[in-house]
């Protein structure tokens, strides 16, 4: 594996006269968990679409290596395929049928849905569906997961559980992760590095790092401090009492 798995070099993206991303640079190393947060409409999903290769930048370059998989908000599973068949889509490259079966069983065990191989997505709960979606993204030889607000369609408690689940799955199957979210709790609890985007046209407003091993308690002091900083950066507090240090002040980490 190379040291930087995803490289965004001075990328801009406009849709007609609407400038969404401006001159954005970013490097993501193998094994890193990066969260991208920002105001809604700030181009988080546009950035993810560029990283996945689904969209191409107006200017600048994006370099990616390895297999990149996307995890969608909801309805990413094919409703006409069973949970097992959906996960097996990620194992299609394996020529040996027995090996595919073995790996599928392993993934189902990993997400705790052993008995659900033949169950269709519409018969599963929202949390179970997202677990199947994660299993599909993690199965086989994927290197990078791009996640577009993967838990936003779930209720709060399920979301908390899914975060713990994701941390656990990543310990079993380490991957590079780019998580787009508007949920600062999620970012602070999961990411090694959090990139805050500015209003449109989006640039990197600041970068925060969190040096606490996963899984993290939501109430861990550093998680809480990170959330506090994120609130400040997103302009959600008046700033009083917020422990904003110099390293996270505006502009740091911007590509140029």
């Amino acid at each position: 594996m190379t040291s930087s798995l995803l490289k965004v070099d001075r990328v801009s993206r406009s849709f007609g006269s609407l400038e969404v991303l401006r001159d954005l640079s970013l490097e993501i190393s193998a094994g890193e968990f990066v969260a991208i947060v920002g105001p809604s409409g700030s181009g988080k999903t546009t950035l993810l679409n560029l990283l996945s290769g689904y969209d191409t930048p107006t200017s600048g370059t994006i370099t990616q290596s390895g297999v990149v998989r996307m995890v969608y908000q909801h309805d990413g599973l094919f409703p006409w395929k069973t949970a097992g068949e959906n996960i097996s889509m990620a194992l299609r490259y394996l020529p040996d049928k027995a090996e595919r079966g073995r790996q599928l069983a392993e993934m189902l065990t990993l997400i705790g849905l052993e008995g659900f191989a033949d169950t269709y997505p519409h018969q599963l709960s929202g949390g179970m569906r997202q677990r199947v979606e994660l299993a599909r993204a993690l199965a086989g030889k994927a290197d990078t997961l791009l996640m577009d607000e993967p838990f936003s369609a779930l209720d709060y408690l399920t979301r908390l559980r899914m975060r713990r689940e994701l941390a656990r799955l990543l310990r079993e199957r380490p991957r590079t992760v780019v998580l787009v979210t508007h949920d600062i709790e999620e970012a602070a609890q999961l990411a090694d590095r959090i990139i805050v985007l500015s209003e449109r046209p989006a640039q990197i407003r600041c970068e925060l790092t969190v040096n606490v091993p996963r899984p993290r308690q939501l109430t861990h002091p550093e998680v809480i401090e990170t959330m506090q900083r994120l609130l400040v950066e997103l302009g959600m507090t008046g700033g009083e009492g917020a422990p904003v240090t110099e390293e996270v002040s505006e502009g740091l980490g911007v590509g140029d």
């Binding site: 996945s52 689904y54 998989r69 996307m70 969608y72 309805d75 990413g76 599973l77 094919f78 889509m89 990620a90 299609r92 490259y93």
Partner: peptide, 13 residues
């Protein structure tokens, strides 16, 4: 057909 199905189809070849 939702766009996401086409994207997933592309993702998984």
């Amino acid at each position: 057909i939702p766009t996401v199905h086409f994207r997933v189809a592309q993702d998984y070849g």
